[in-house]
Design a binder for these strands. Sequence first.
DNA 1: CTGCCTATCGAGCAATGCTCAATAGTGCGG
DNA 2: CCGCACTATTGAGCATTGCTCGATAGGCAG
Lengths: 195, 195
Amino acid sequence: MAESQTRRGRQSPEQRRSQLIGIGLDMLTRRPLHQVTIDEVAAKAGISRSLLFHYFPTKRDYYAEVVRAASRRLLRATRAETGEQNTVEGVVAGYLSFIERRHEPYIALFRSAGTDDWVREIFVETRAALVDELLTALRLVEPTELVRAAVGAWLSFAEELSLEWAQHRVGTREEVLALLIGALRSVVPAEPHGS
Amino acid sequence: MAESQTRRGRQSPEQRRSQLIGIGLDMLTRRPLHQVTIDEVAAKAGISRSLLFHYFPTKRDYYAEVVRAASRRLLRATRAETGEQNTVEGVVAGYLSFIERRHEPYIALFRSAGTDDWVREIFVETRAALVDELLTALRLVEPTELVRAAVGAWLSFAEELSLEWAQHRVGTREEVLALLIGALRSVVPAEPHGS
DNA sequence: CTGCCTATCGAGCAATGCTCAATAGTGCGG
DNA sequence: CCGCACTATTGAGCATTGCTCGATAGGCAG
């Protein structure tokens, strides 16, 4: 497994970079980022510490790129899941099944959010993108700042409840879905009628 | 300021411990815990690194006690704020004004939640206690697991929205309060009538 | 084949968590 | 008042880890 990531000999910068980021993504799902050492990553890649610093000026920059990559993956996956739906029910159901299937990387990503400001930043960017998806799916154009904030906060609610459900299966899927949709409806202004 | 924490000479273990934890609490409000070094704390206390390890077997243990202390403070403060009220409106309003006044330590505490499992643990304990307060204030005895989970998730929602409001003042206080209460109502079963 | 470009390495530095044996206040029995 | 035990306190030192820098070596252009 460590070997599968290892390719000996001189390589092109792009290969190396993506290999290193790939390793980072892998580690990210196993434990909080800040307790992953450069030595470990280098060892898994079969290179020396120094080389990693040749590609990423600092540990932070490396982590930042890894987290960014994880965030992109996440957004793509959510979009794939909820892409066809554009009713509230569809989007929320998509979100829930997404978390049901992928709650581990999701947890991993958001667990690493608290660590430092530079991660936090990527984290809020990601959430902002998710909020946008939700808002357009809800056909709420030009929402007030308060509505944006409320939807962002609802996302916290949804994350927490969905993860709890995915991990401990408290309640039925339908009940959870009803709670999620009910909360969202109580928080955003009613959608405009008609198409 | 560093001097105010400094007391020279031999001291009783209890004094030292509480002094050190006090310093930790102070640091906690300034930046994420995991980037506070033992050297720094020791310097502020006017003692050597070694002594800190005499009182706390490991850095983690020290941090854990600091976070626990912060958590206790937080719970006491919330209780003080919402103590008299026992309507939904009263509790939620109390919670909101609490965060309005004390959002910095609150942020500090929860920002350090993502770092490691041992902090996470204290964090969930604290949240569980808050959920209990809410449930009794809501006069919901013997809630189902799902209701507990939902209230816990609502707390995430409330945290996020209240902090956003406290920091950027998006919307009026009444609007935010209405959102909070509306969401909570939509999430828990109706309270029993009568007194 | 020669020489340049650069991917790659190894040695070494500084910060930091942590250990351990030694030191120095403090209070108690005489 | 003296000395002794107890322990708060220290300083030196070790291992890990993020990071630097000069040296090496593999591959491509000419």
